[in-house]
Amino acid sequence: MEILKTENLEKVYEDNGVPVHALKGINLTINKGDYLVIAGPSGSGKTTLLNLLGALDTPTKGKILFEGTDLAKKSRRELSEFRLQNLGFIFQAYNLIPVLTAIENIEFSMMLSGIPENERRERALSLMHELDIKELADKRPNEMSGGQQQRVAVARAIVNDPEVVLADEPTANLDSATGSVLLDLMEKMNKEKNITFIFSSHDKQVIDRAGILLKLKDGKIEK
C-alpha cells in the first residue's frame, strides 16, 4: 500500500544570496512497511529529503503526497498535527528532552495526542518492557549512555503508533556493536508492527540492512 510519494520534488536554498539546488526532481514511492535507506555522500541531499518527507520543510517545487494528500498544502499548524499523528523521529544526537526522565520522554508525544495519563503510563511501560529498557524508566538522559538514549528515542518515536518513522543518521554517534543492537530493534519493530522506516545514513551497517536502498548524489537519485 502506497503511503508516501514525491513528484518532481525540488528544494532550492539560498546560501548568502546564492541559490543552492539541494534536490533536483525527486520521484519516489514508499509503501507501508518499507524499510528504506537513503544513502549518499555529505551534501547529496539526504537530510533535505528526510526533512521534506517528515513535513518539517516545504518543497520549492513538486509534491509530497501522504496517503494521497499533498503536504505542501497544509498549514504549519496542520503539519504539526500531521507529524504528531503519523510520524516518529529518531535523531543522530538522540535529542531526548533533558529535563524529563526516560518514561516521561516516551509519554510526551502521547500527552500531546491527549491520551490520558494512566493509559500513556501503561503503554510506555509496556513498550519499555518490549524494548528491554524498563530499568531506564526514571533516569534522565544525562544518566544514560548514548545507546540507551537512542533506544529510548526509538520508543518515543514508535509509541504513538506512527505510520512512518524517520531516522536521521541514527547510528552515527554509536559504536558499531551498540548501533547493531539498535538496528536489530528497529528491524524487529518494522517486521512485528509493520512500521515504515526511512533512514538517512552513510553508515555501512545501516545500508547493508536496507530493504530498499535509495542512493542520492548531487540532489538526484542515482540509477
Binding site: L56, R77, S80, E81, F82, R83, F89, N95, S109, L112
Partner: peptide
C-alpha cells in the same frame, strides 16, 4: 533552540 526544534518535529503545536 535545538530542543524546541525537537518538540516541533515530534508534533508539539505552537500554542503548547
Amino acid at each position: 533552540i535545538n530542543e524546541i526544534g525537537v518538540l516541533m518535529s515530534i508534533g508539539m503545536k505552537n500554542i503548547k
